[in-house]
Amino acid sequence: MTTAPILEVRGLSARYGEVVALRDAELTMREGEFVAVLGPNGAGKSTLMRSIIGLANATGTVRFRGAALKRDPAAVAAAGIALVPEGRGIFGPMSVAENLQLGAYMIGGRGPDYERRLARVLHLFPRLKERLDQVAGSMSGGEQQMLAVGRALMADPKLILLDEPSLGLAPKVTAEILESLALLNREGLSVLLVEQKAPLALKLAGRAYVVSNGRISAEIDPKEITSHGDLARYYFA
């Protein structure tokens, strides 16, 4: 069954000064989909994410559930989209509990709904439960990534965007985090995952876009990719 579009990106372009980092990106995601964005380093994947969320200086349109999105990260968050940025963006000097509370800033960081969301995140990442009072910056990279994802989930988003969540992490930890996302996706959360490690992303995604030289160069079915050669064909097309 085809579901309604949750995210529609049309003619999205972004530049950093004179450098055009993204050209006329077109992307559609449906409710409940797990979509991967692949591509070599510097291809424009992160710029695509930042442009969708309103962090990059971009032109073009982004619609979420049919409504145009404002180019303002706080408004985008309020609409129901969460971004786990590259580098995690956790509040290092603050405790894990404070980070999670700020994830639920829009509901005032308290109340029954907050407790329900917190319980769900701690169930998903039990390691965070043991470290609630710990300073977030003192945790391992994997735990920080779990916190970044957990904090994003505290907003109870309808769509979660992840930018290179595997960066600098051990494969086992990455697998643990991505497994959690796959579980949430099965429960109905839409996931847009930017990932350099294509095999990881392709294992989970139902569909993938390839970004190359600032353009979305291909849309692929992960089942068609059986070797590195298949992927390289798209990367360097």
Binding site: I53, L55, D72, P73, A74, A77, A78, A82, L83, P85, G89, I90, F91, G92, P93, M94, E98, Q101, L102, G103, Y105, M106, G108, G109, R110, R151, A152, A155
Partner: peptide, 24 residues
């Protein structure tokens, strides 16, 4: 307080704070 924590969050990482829905 949540507002105090939000102000600290802005001090630590303004972009990440905005991603939580905090109007910087």
């Amino acid at each position: 307080t949540l507002v105090g924590r939000a102000m600290r969050a802005c001090a630590i990482n303004r972009e990440a704070a905005a991603l939580q829905g905090i109007v910087v």
